[in-house]
Design a protein around this nucleic acid. Structure first.
Lengths: 113, 113
DNA sequence: CCGGTATATTGACAACTGTCGATACATCGA
DNA sequence: TCGATGTATCGACAGTTGTCAATATACCGG
């Protein structure tokens, strides 16, 4: 039998969903998606994300000054974004290097279609 | 002189921003964008949005049952979504009819590019 | 004008969140 | 090994948020 016609958006834990405007979301789909949008629902995290995007690869210590937040706060926000799958981090020596996850953003764009 | 090359995303209050990944966001841009994403950062609101999208035009009273929430709660969520510009409401007699604002969703998609 | 109905607002409360200081952990250079 | 540095975690606290019962407001039919 043929696969579903509408492209499904891949979320964490193997949960998928059709684009927002195509079919009503199920409970777990909505919960999963909301987690990602909630991660974007904070000005500091949005600016953090755009800083990492602009730099390509940015270490945590280089985010404190431009964002004007303490080190624990930066660490908190990077964790939230990483948990949402929007950021990926690699520890290099003492430094934690962060990069954008383009596929994740693209999945979000698809979910808004 | 030529206009800016990158398309700007239109937000409330005449605030605009370049796509997230193109240039670091300014403070007010981030605050404005975060408000919209925060509106999407709740499972009930995401399901509400998808219900309205599926129905084309849906009245508040038809949302209580499928969402399993009280009438004041539905009213609260529609207000949050409307404030974020994602939903537009028109009072018809006793009923409040809600519709999606496609341009707003498209602007969000553009901001994620 | 009155009773019924759809919606908005208010007040209250528990749960969550953003923030920072203090502290612990990890890694490097000397 | 030791001190310095970058990061994560913990504890605390103020502010925000999702929820509902109660109430107020708006609108319709008779």
């Amino acid at each position: 039998m043929a696969a579903k016609r509408t492209a499904l958006i891949e979320l964490d834990d193997g949960v998928c969903c059709a684009p927002l405007l195509v079919a009503p979301l199920a409970d777990d789909e909505a919960t999963e998606l909301a987690l990602v949008f909630a991660a974007l629902g904070d000005p500091v995290r949005l600016r953090l994300l755009s800083l990492v995007a602009a730099g390509g690869e940015v270490c945590s210590c280089d985010l404190e000054a431009p964002l004007g937040k303490s080190q624990p706060t930066i660490s908190h926000h990077t964790k939230v974004l990483a948990d949402a799958g929007l950021l990926t981090g690699e520890k290099r020596g003492r430094w934690m290097m962060w990069r954008i996850v383009p596929d994740r953003l693209e999945a979000l764009r698809a979910a808004l279609a």
